Computed example of a mutant assay.
Amino acid sequence: MRAPVSHALPAALAAILALSACASGPPRAPASASAKFTNIPYAAWEDYEPPYRFYPGDDVDVTVPSAPELSKTVTVQPDGRIAMPLIAPVMAADRTIPEVEAELSQAYAGQLLRPQVYVAAKAAPLKVYVGGEVGNPGIYDMAGDTDALRAIVQAGDFKSSADRSEVIVIRRGPNGAGMMRRVDLLNGLKSPAADLVPLRRFDIVYVPRSGVSAAGVFVQQYFRDLSPIQFGFSYAVNGQNR
């Protein structure tokens, strides 16, 4: 099911690029691809499985063994927080399971003798962004595992102006660094053995126009100024960003 692109997501890859600027090494791509993006400091691509991070709308199972009556399933609210009994709302958005567990346990330390809290993520859709020369660019909730080609098909398939051999996949890598790779989906349409790139949550798939310059302009300008998916959260709490 397609979700509309929110106006509250104005900084899509700003977070990734700010972090990836500290990463060293060019992307692992053919020389021809590297030449097109020489001033984009991406980390080398690797098949990295990022830790699960919560996102607004996610359901979270919270278990408090020493006080079972406090255990419940909560939803991450639009402001990124979850609400639990006896304590103030706790920030969960863009945090991993261990980070949320630690935050909740600390919050309950003043209420319980044994404040250990356990958190589990309930099944959540694989949310990816598909943009560029596709029928309906936007953020999509993918059912189950998927790859770049299937995501493009769900987004309305390639336009006639698309360069199917230069599809770009952006992923948040280790330590928040942005990783980029080029995928030849033209070959993927012909060969069952082709690597269609299995996608991870919050991956970005961009289909450029035919021609080298269009892809370069997108990566250099659009990714730096507009972020289709919010990779980092910054919420003001009592006048301070958290």
Score class of each variant (00 low, 15 high):
residue 114 R to W: 13
residue 80 G to A: 04
residue 28 R to T: 11
residue 100 V to K: 02
residue 80 G to N: 08
residue 41 P to A: 03
residue 54 F to H: 02
residue 103 E to M: 13
residue 48 Y to R: 07
residue 46 E to P: 06
residue 113 L to E: 15
residue 92 A to F: 14
residue 76 V to Q: 12
residue 38 T to V: 05
residue 67 A to G: 09
residue 17 L to T: 11
residue 94 D to M: 12
residue 54 F to S: 10
residue 92 A to E: 06
residue 102 A to N: 05
residue 19 L to C: 11
residue 96 T to M: 09
residue 94 D to C: 14
residue 85 P to C: 07
residue 55 Y to S: 12
residue 89 P to A: 02
residue 74 V to Y: 00
residue 104 L to N: 03
residue 62 V to M: 01
residue 112 L to K: 14
residue 33 A to M: 04
residue 90 V to H: 02
residue 121 A to P: 11
residue 32 S to T: 09
residue 91 M to A: 14
residue 107 A to E: 04
residue 26 P to C: 04
residue 29 A to L: 15
residue 61 D to F: 04
residue 65 P to G: 09
residue 79 D to Q: 10
residue 81 R to E: 03
residue 20 S to C: 15
residue 19 L to P: 09
residue 18 A to E: 12
residue 18 A to P: 01
residue 95 R to K: 14
residue 90 V to R: 01
residue 78 P to K: 09
residue 43 A to N: 11
residue 14 A to Q: 15
residue 93 A to D: 03
residue 52 Y to P: 11
residue 98 P to F: 04
residue 109 A to M: 12
residue 105 S to W: 04
residue 24 S to Q: 12
residue 87 I to Y: 05
residue 19 L to W: 13
residue 107 A to R: 14
residue 33 A to K: 03
residue 82 I to H: 01
residue 103 E to I: 09
residue 114 R to I: 13
residue 80 G to L: 06
residue 113 L to G: 08
residue 60 V to R: 00
residue 77 Q to M: 15
residue 50 P to G: 12
residue 110 G to P: 14
residue 38 T to Y: 05
residue 117 V to T: 10
residue 35 A to V: 05
residue 90 V to L: 08
residue 100 V to T: 08
residue 15 A to E: 09
residue 11 A to Y: 07
residue 92 A to W: 08
residue 47 D to M: 08
residue 24 S to M: 05
residue 22 C to N: 15
residue 121 A to N: 07
residue 86 L to H: 07
residue 36 K to T: 01
residue 19 L to V: 13
residue 57 G to R: 08
residue 111 Q to R: 15
residue 41 P to L: 10
residue 109 A to E: 11
residue 52 Y to A: 08
residue 49 E to L: 10
residue 86 L to Q: 03
residue 92 A to P: 12
residue 107 A to Y: 13
residue 62 V to K: 00
residue 35 A to D: 14
residue 65 P to L: 00
residue 70 L to C: 06
residue 119 V to D: 06
residue 41 P to D: 07
residue 70 L to H: 08
residue 82 I to G: 00
residue 45 W to R: 02
residue 120 A to S: 15
residue 121 A to R: 12
residue 44 A to G: 12
residue 14 A to K: 12
residue 110 G to K: 13
residue 15 A to L: 01
residue 99 E to F: 09
residue 96 T to W: 02
residue 120 A to K: 15
residue 60 V to P: 05
residue 20 S to M: 13
residue 54 F to D: 03
residue 91 M to P: 04
residue 122 K to T: 09
residue 107 A to T: 10
residue 73 T to C: 01
residue 21 A to E: 14
residue 15 A to D: 14
residue 104 L to D: 05
residue 85 P to E: 05
residue 29 A to H: 00
residue 122 K to V: 08
residue 21 A to F: 08
residue 97 I to W: 11
residue 53 R to C: 06
residue 64 V to A: 05
residue 97 I to P: 15
residue 108 Y to V: 04
residue 77 Q to G: 04
residue 45 W to Y: 03
residue 55 Y to N: 09
residue 83 A to C: 07
residue 44 A to M: 09
residue 78 P to M: 05
residue 23 A to I: 12
residue 106 Q to W: 03
residue 70 L to S: 08
residue 53 R to P: 11
residue 12 A to L: 15
residue 55 Y to G: 01
residue 34 S to F: 06
residue 98 P to E: 05
residue 114 R to D: 15
residue 40 I to P: 02
